[in-house]
C-alpha cells in the first residue's frame, strides 16, 4: 500500500468523514490547533527574543527556559493531537497539498533547532546566561526559530487555500 493509498483510506474512514463533513467539529479542532501553536510558538518566541537580547534581558537564560518549557510542551501536545485529527479528516487532500508538505518540512526543521541548541550551545549556558547579549550561536538559534515558526504559521494557513 502506497502512502497515497494510506491517506485515501484514512480520510475515507467513518471518523475521518464525520470530522470533515461537520463544519462545527472541524472548526473546533482547527481552533484548538491554533491555540496549541500559539502556546508553543508564542512562548518559544519569548526565549528566541531573549537569546537575541531583545526581551527579558535582566533574567537568566536558564530561568527563561525553565519558564517557557512546560507551556511550550503543553502547546506542542495540543498542536500534535489536534493536527493529527485535522490530517485524519483531510489526509487525501493533504497528501498532494504543497502548503502541507512545506509545513511538515518546516516543522521538522523547527523541532531539530532546539534539539541541536540544547545538545550544543545550551550546555555551556552557565558561562553566558547572565549576558544581555548571548553568543552568536545562540542568536542564530533564536533567529532560526522565529523564522521557522512564522513559516509554519503561514504555511499552515495556506493549506486551506489549496483545498
Amino acid at each position: 500500500m502506497s502512502l497515497l493509498h494510506l491517506c485515501q483510506w484514512l480520510s475515507a474512514t467513518p471518523a475521518g468523514t464525520a470530522m470533515r463533513e461537520s463544519p462545527w467539529i472541524y472548526s473546533l479542532i482547527e481552533s484548538i490547533h491554533v491555540l496549541g501553536i500559539t502556546a508553543l510558538a508564542g512562548t518559544a518566541a519569548v526565549l528566541d527574543l531573549r537569546l537575541l537580547g531583545v526581551t527579558m534581558r535582566r533574567e537568566q537564560v536558564s530561568q527563561v527556559v525553565e519558564l517557557i518549557t512546560p507551556i511550550a510542551w503543553f502547546g506542542a501536545a495540543i498542536m500534535f493531537g489536534s493536527g493529527l485529527l485535522l490530517f485524519w479528516a483531510k489526509a487525501e487532500n493533504c497528501y498532494a497539498n504543497p502548503a502541507f508538505r512545506l509545513k511538515l518540512l518546516l516543522l521538522l526543521l523547527a523541532a531539530s533547532n532546539p534539539l541541536v541548541f540544547h545538545l550544543t550551545t545550551y550546555r555551556s549556558v552557565a558561562s553566558w546566561e547572565n549576558a544581555t547579549e548571548p553568543p552568536p550561536r545562540a542568536k542564530v538559534a533564536g533567529i532560526l526559530s522565529l523564522v521557522l515558526w512564522s513559516g509554519i504559521i503561514v504555511a499552515g494557513r495556506a493549506i486551506a487555500y489549496y483545498h
Partner: peptide, 9 residues
C-alpha cells in the same frame, strides 16, 4: 502567537 505567548506567561 506573540500576544498569546506573553499573556500565557
Amino acid at each position: 502567537a506573540g500576544l498569546g505567548g506573553t499573556i500565557l506567561i
